[in-house]
Design a protein around this nucleic acid. Sequence first.
DNA 1: AGAGTACGGTACGTACCGTACCCTATCGGC
DNA 2: GCCGATAGGGTACGGTACGTACCGTACTCT
Lengths: 198, 198
Amino acid sequence: MTEAKTRRRGAELERAILLAAADELAEAGYPGLTMERVAQRAGTNKNTIYRRWPNRAALGVAAYRHLAEDTRRPPDTGTLRGDALGLLRAINCDSSSPTARILRGLLAGVSDDPELLAQLHEQAGDGGTTAWLTLLERAVARGEAPPEARHPRVATAALTLLRNEYLTHGLTTVDDDVLVEIVDEVYLPLIRGRRTGA
Amino acid sequence: MTEAKTRRRGAELERAILLAAADELAEAGYPGLTMERVAQRAGTNKNTIYRRWPNRAALGVAAYRHLAEDTRRPPDTGTLRGDALGLLRAINCDSSSPTARILRGLLAGVSDDPELLAQLHEQAGDGGTTAWLTLLERAVARGEAPPEARHPRVATAALTLLRNEYLTHGLTTVDDDVLVEIVDEVYLPLIRGRRTGA
DNA sequence: AGAGTACGGTACGTACCGTACCCTATCGGC
DNA sequence: GCCGATAGGGTACGGTACGTACCGTACTCT
């Protein structure tokens, strides 16, 4: 029936598997990502999957890349506050429903594999560092922030606080009040306070 | 042989189970915490464990309380910088070897149980809020920090950054340089920046 | 056309969760 | 000091999922 088409190979098949895995991740989270279901959904079998990824965790991380497409183009609202809040809201929106749960599961699943954990960190964490830095650059150019503010750990502090909210509270979407609080009570004071001469 | 003693019951048995579970957690992490091993180590059987905790996640969270004894008495060094750094170092020390991995595993394992997640959050996260607030109070009293700094999200910002380091980098112990950077580049500027009139 | 390779199907071994069943030791009341 | 009720101990079981092995088959490349 549906098998009338030609047998897929190589990259095409690999994309199909990753797509199926990403769908399963979105529907059932990492704990619900089973090799058998992925194989069935992709119209293939476990054998083929294990030829490409050594275990479930590796497949999970690879599939996660397809879910967490980096859509972090920093907004340009004219003020640091607006930019920061906009970026947080964008992240909170597209990182909305299942992502936090999936990320928690993956973080646990790759506990014993430093390489996978590094991949995951690059994907979920510091992928956005440059966005935050350019956002700060603009604020510096406007004279709104001191040049000393351009520090990676400072730039991403707001993101770190937001991610902490996801990870420890188990929330899928953070209330907008929290985003405002992070920006007004932490991020902006932090930038202000990095002016030298204090 | 070793069974010559009397059969344990109630609280005594419960403590033995929790102790065994905590040991297993420390040795093999949450993924390695199996009911059978815990039962064997405690000298009992799964039956008895399931009479007390409904599932593995609940047992894991309960056992975690025994591992993460809250030893956060804020140090008193006379400066905010010294206090904050001391508290971070204390946390980094006793939260050293396996705790990050265990916490990652538990966070994932309780994903679908809000009550357990709340327990875990209370234990691992905001249990230290008061310590950070008293630390800030002293700084305010010394005139070293503005009164506006006494805000929960501000007070625990350093802890949040440290925990983020644990969770996303998979590190068991964070390098002291990172602690210094968190305090000097983020925490102290943040406190400074919360002075009004800026 | 033929060798080599990649895919598909399936069955298997292992591990572990959670449950059921039954026996036995201990406790509290009398 | 006996006796039912309760709680602990032992074991076996169903169910699920990971990861592996084996083998037949389609495709590719020369």
